[in-house]
């Protein structure tokens, strides 16, 4: 029997985020700075959306649901390779921290991008609020932090495929369909899906902010 664990908003967020990171990389690699800026502001909208959704969204998307003490997450990781961890309905304790780290690093990437310039006429949306020297420093950091994003993505993929290949718990499929086999969920964790118009409100707010900063 299948139950819904990931709502449409969370799933769309996840896959659009993947696409968005790829687009941001592709556009800068091919010197398409205007499109890169759009990709960056889209990323900002996504991150703001996820933060709002983490407060008022469905139970599996809420921060209060998946943020545990770091020691719990570490213990979970150790027990996980010993196959002695229970199933989680939403994010497991380690996965929860992965979400937070991702949001922080991507958030830094977006903000540093908005503070940077390319010396060829492009200035990020917030670059006028800092000195040229500071903007140059953020341009450097913006470039450097991409290596951290790659590293985090790699760790994320290693963890996900550990579940898919070793634990036979197909998290990728679940992130597409939103459904999980009831045997692979936690009985004590009941899913409460938030109304979809909540997601539209969050999206409206986040897109408005990103657009306002863009224009």
């Amino acid at each position: 029997m299948q139950i819904k664990v990931w709502d449409l908003a969370t799933r769309l967020f996840h896959w659009v985020l993947v696409l968005n990171i790829f687009l941001a990389w592709y556009t800068i690699e091919n010197r398409m700075i205007e499109l890169h800026e759009i990709a960056g502001h889209s990323l900002l909208a996504l991150l703001v959306f996820r933060v709002l959704w983490g407060v008022i969204g469905s139970s599996t998307a809420r921060f209060t649901q998946f943020i545990k003490y770091p020691r719990v997450a570490i213990r979970y990781l150790i027990n996980s390779v010993k196959f002695s961890t229970p199933h989680s309905t939403g994010h497991n304790p380690a996965g929860g921290w992965m979400v937070i780290v991702m949001l922080v690093i991507l958030g830094f990437q977006v903000i540093s991008g908005m503070l940077s310039n390319n010396d060829l006429g492009f200035s990020g949306a917030l670059s006028d609020y800092v000195s040229k020297g500071m903007s140059d420093t953020f341009t450097q950091l913006h470039s450097l932090s991409f290596d951290f994003i790659l590293f985090i993505v790699w760790i994320h993929l290693v963890a996900v495929f550990f579940y898919v290949l070793v634990k036979k718990d197909n998290l990728v499929k679940a992130m597409f369909s939103g459904d999980k086999n009831i045997e692979q969920t936690s009985q004590s964790e009941k899913v409460k899906l938030a109304p979809q118009y909540f997601a539209l409100i969050c999206l409206g707010c986040s897109v408005s902010l990103a657009y306002w900063l863009w224009v």
Binding site: S80, V81, F83, S84, T85, P86, H87, L165, V166, K167, K168, D169, I182, E183, Q184, T185, S186, Q187, S188
Partner: peptide, 16 residues
């Protein structure tokens, strides 16, 4: 409390 499902079993060909 509701009983938890059994934890993961090491039944895969791909071991840890």
């Amino acid at each position: 409390k509701p009983a938890e499902h059994l934890s993961y079993q090491a039944t895969s060909y791909i071991t840890v």
